[in-house]
């Protein structure tokens, strides 16, 4: 049973020699995953909003054609990027763009390419989540907003998206965690994230398993912290379970001491009948069912 101490010493050896590489790998992975998730969410929200612009039969033909075209384009984007492996997308964009444009378009920085690939990939998934999130909001919310004269953009920004956003936080978390892990395929365009550090270390030392242990623990730590932060964000957005009653002046405060707000309001007292009824209630207790 001397494998465990050996593993321990191998890990220490790797950390000692390649600790810096692992750490900068963690940093790059986190920056890439976080930034790409944020940009991806923005793309997703944009697509979600554009896809849910209401299109009535009575609108003019130009608008209907344009909206129809928009939906087709977004549909194609989602299906293509959701339906192909991210490794290949990276190759297509990093090597393919310079190839077909004859070197006109090329990436001077591998960061730009990596961010682009992961962002549009996340965007494709998020577009569907956002669309689902928007559809799942009670239509009454939209009607309530329309009824006070809000237009589509105002309704979306003030009422629908905040609620949709709350509902799809778990999806965003999912995507973030998937991104932390899946950015490991970016080694294909020689982006030096966490997994690239593993490839570098084992290339020089052949200590495959000890390095893999470091990787496993590292990825798990990153995803656990991400889960924890997302749960915290969810709780924060839900707000407090209780609320305070607000009283501006002493009279209202005093009124509250003998007349619970549930039972009636200063406004109600305008009605003579109500006052009499309240008096009777105080005397004989509340009677139900009379209207």
């Amino acid at each position: 049973m001397n494998e465990v101490p050996e593993l321990y010493s191998d890990i220490l050896y790797l950390l000692d020699r390649y600790g810096g590489a692992y750490l900068s790998g963690v940093r790059n992975t986190l920056i890439l995953a976080l930034t790409a998730t944020v940009i991806g969410c923005l793309i997703g929200f944009l697509c979600g909003i554009l896809q849910t612009i209401p299109c009535a039969k009575t609108d003019n033909p130009f608008k209907r054609f344009f909206l129809g075209l928009l939906r087709v384009v977004i549909r194609a984007y989602v299906e293509i990027f959701r339906g192909t492996p991210m490794v290949l997308q990276a190759v297509f964009i990093y090597y393919g763009l310079p190839y077909i444009t004859g070197g006109q378009v090329k990436f001077s920085n591998v960061w730009v390419a990596a961010l682009l690939v992961v962002s549009i990939n996340t965007g494709a998934y998020m577009a569907e989540s956002v669309r689902g999130g928007i559809i799942s909001i009670d239509p009454g919310q939209t009607e309530g907003a329309k009824a006070i004269g809000m237009n589509h953009v105002q309704t979306m920004l003030s009422v629908i998206l905040p609620q949709a956003f709350r509902n799809i936080i778990p999806q965003i978390g999912n995507n973030f965690i998937i991104n932390i892990k899946d950015t490991s395929v970016m080694f294909i365009i020689s982006f030096t994230e966490f997994f690239a550090a593993h490839r570098a270390a084992v290339g020089a030392t052949y200590k495959y398993f000890p390095s893999a242990v470091i990787e496993m623990v590292g990825y798990l730590c990153m995803t656990l912290i991400a889960s924890f932060l997302l749960r915290w964000l969810e709780r924060r957005m839900d707000g407090a379970d209780s609320y305070e009653l607000v009283a501006d002046d002493q009279l209202v405060m005093a009124a509250g001491t003998y007349n619970h707000p549930d039972k009636g309001t200063p406004f109600d007292e305008r009605s003579k009948e109500y006052r009499e009824q309240a008096r009777q209630e105080l005397k004989y207790g509340r009677t139900r069912g009379e209207r």
Binding site: G144, K146, A147, I148, G149, S158, Q163
Partner: peptide, 23 residues
């Protein structure tokens, strides 16, 4: 413009339709 017109015509719904994300 429907929104402009609706701003002059208030509506109260059977299911209240208060905005759930606001106080």
């Amino acid at each position: 413009k429907a929104p402009e017109y609706r701003a002059h015509v208030g509506m109260v719904f059977q299911s209240f339709n208060l905005f759930n994300n606001m106080t």
